[in-house]
Design a binder for these strands. Structure first.
Lengths: 157, 157
DNA sequence: GTAAAAATCATCCTAAAGTATGAAGCCTTT
DNA sequence: AAAGGCTTCATACTTTAGGATGATTTTTAC
């Protein structure tokens, strides 16, 4: 199929190829003419392009990369709490018993008398007695005052 | 207007002027070449040097600096005895009114409702209303819990 | 100017806190 | 063994705190 097509139109193909070659030759000659006529300018241009590229390459490769460091300070608040240092002296001075101190600590945690009683496995009345003696020793009238004073005196954290 | 245009396109204008000067220089060198025929190598060398420099300049001026963002976390330790730093975020989240916050602060100081009322020149009932709304917002049942939670959340010192 | 939020005050009621007093059991010290 | 402190518990009572609801005024936001 392909072979028969080639043999049939051999002359036409040959003519076409010759024409193409001729046009190509003409174009090439034209180009050569331009090149020959402007050989010097083109040479200079080539030099310029090559050395500009060289300059860019040198600059990019042989210099330290430009890095702009942006430092964003982010403050992180650390609730260190500051190690609690028990004020032993004040504690001694108040003369609180161990049970009273326990009650005071649970009061500071926000527990009610009933809850404290449950926590310590004693009756509500017992806690009331403890708290009364506690208030008396601490010279306060209410649990809120006791807690405030205890924190101020560093008896509890 | 004109000044801003100038400053805005400073690089372009500068480049244009440089190019013009360069062309002038080239023309002058060409003339010299005609006169001094032996300086061809020097001419080429000058071209190479100039365009290398141009390439370097271009690369340095027209490349964008890489931006590296470094986040430095700066820890801020908050000591127990140190300055109190209000936890604005938590305070906002609770949605306490200014009056409620006042009441809370006086509660933390160990004052009774009656005393708070006297301090703020309002009736006891008003303080009760405030405290009720306060407890509701803070999701607590008692003033001692409110004070404990407020101190824990750093809403009050 | 209207709607929403805040602040104020009141009444009634219940729950919790606090006072006063007494008492029993368990330690330690004298 | 007696004295004193600690813990426990109880009863009776007063005070304070807290809940529920309704209302008025003021401030704030749209």
């Amino acid at each position: 199929m392909a072979a028969s097509f080639l043999s049939k139109h051999k002359h036409i193909i040959l003519y076409g190829v010759c024409l193409a070659l001729l046009l190509f030759l003409l174009k090439w000659l034209e180009l050569r003419l331009i090149i020959i006529n402007h050989a010097f300018e083109m040479y200079i241009g080539a030099i310029a392009v090559i050395f500009t590229a060289l300059g860019i390459w040198l600059a990019l490769k042989l210099t330290k990369p430009k890095v702009r460091t942006v430092i964003v300070e982010k403050e992180v608040y650390v609730q260190h709490g500051g190690e609690f240092t028990l004020n032993e002296q004040e504690l001694q001075q108040l003369g609180l018993s161990s049970r009273e101190l326990e009650v005071l600590q649970l009061m500071a945690a926000g527990l009610s008398n009933q809850e404290i009683a449950g926590r310590l496995f004693v009756s509500l009345n017992t806690i009331k007695t403890h708290s009364s003696r506690l208030f008396e020793k601490m010279d306060v009238k209410r649990r809120t005052q006791a807690v405030e004073k205890a924190k101020r005196l560093r008896i509890i954290p």
